[in-house]
Design a protein around this nucleic acid. Structure first.
Length: 298
DNA sequence: GTGTTTGTTATCAA
DNA sequence: CTTGATAACAAACA
């Protein structure tokens, strides 16, 4: 479940790996994964260089080099949705991920053979390195868009991101005003705040002491301030810890994220709250598994 | 066979 | 037009 911290972790690693590298071979093992005709997709990308790697919310963005006749830059955008992985293999490196949570725990060590049955696309660079796009559930996609199209996508679909100036206390106050939906739905809405998903919404609400089912416009000023700082704190810590691996996520080297063992409520239904020992509640809200402490969260 | 997992969009209602 | 609620999608596993 890649959310902002996971996608940002991948982005930061890929910047180092692929910037200014030229794509020489594209293999599209699952044609539906690209939102284009396979031949067009492959032909368009061939011999282009990656000029930069960016992110908006959970969307990863590769800037492509321009051809001489083109006025406008184009971009390869990648959404990992639930089970997408981007794994980069240098030609001399053998992939053995791991060293994630506990070096003594062998179950934390991943072994990846690539490509595998979930590999949907493969980009081979002129230096021999390869970027694999794996996606067990096939929700993810690859799409080529012009600069203009990209700006429209960013503008229409994504609100301010945590840890940026646009995501201010004033903004959050206004976003909650006149909203009668439960706060979990509001926080999951990418147009309101970009980047949060099921895990970090539950974690931020726990840190703020606010129940996920609360109506957004009922949140008191004091709670809203706590929630604002909680969202930023959770996202910042998750990035520092290279994201959360709950089941599927790995970074671009095939390694798990370290935030998994810092989760306070997500995935802890019926287990005692780390703060007050009360069993964590698990309910369904906004169609999603939702975890909270009935004692710590009001 | 049943229920569960989630990011996002579609659809419908108000 | 906006907002909210819910279903749907995809694939694998217990």
């Amino acid at each position: 479940m890649p959310e902002l911290p996971e996608v940002e972790t991948i982005r930061r690693d890929l910047v180092k790996a692929v910037t200014l590298e030229k794509i020489s071979v594209i293999k599209l093992l699952s044609p539906k994964t690209a939102k284009h005709d396979a031949a067009f997709f492959i032909d368009f990308l061939k011999s282009r260089k990656i000029k930069g790697v960016y992110r908006r919310g959970k969307l990863l963005i590769f800037e492509l080099s321009k051809k001489k006749t083109e006025k406008e830059s184009h971009f390869l955008i990648i959404h990992l949705k639930m089970t997408g992985q981007l794994i980069y293999v240098g030609k001399k490196k053998k992939i053995i991920g791991g060293h994630s949570l506990n070096e003594n725990n062998l179950s934390d060590v991943l072994e990846l053979t690539l490509p595998n049955k979930h590999t949907r696309a493969q980009f081979i660079f002129s230096n021999g390195d390869t970027l694999y796009f794996n996606d067990m559930r096939r929700f993810g996609y690859l799409q080529i868009v012009s600069g203009t199209e990209l700006e429209r996508i960013k503008r229409v679909n994504y609100g301010p991101e945590p840890l940026t100036d646009d995501f201010s206390l004033d903004y959050l106050t206004n976003a909650f005003k006149n909203r009668t939906a439960n706060i979990k739905s509001i926080l999951l809405n990418q147009k309101i705040i970009a980047g949060l998903g099921n895990i970090y919404v539950d974690e931020a609400l726990f840190l703020a002491g606010v129940r996920p089912g609360r109506m957004a416009n009922d949140i008191k000023k004091k709670e809203l301030i706590k929630l604002y700082f909680a969202i930023n704190e959770i996202i910042e810590k998750a990035i520092v810890n290279r994201g959360t691996t709950f089941n599927n996520y790995v970074d671009s080297s095939g390694r798990k994220g370290n935030f998994s063992n810092m989760l306070q409520v997500y995935g802890r239904g019926k287990l005692p709250c780390f703060v007050c020992k009360e069993p964590i509640m698990k309910i369904k809200l906004a169609g999603r598994g939702t975890h909270y402490c009935p004692k710590c969260q009001k």
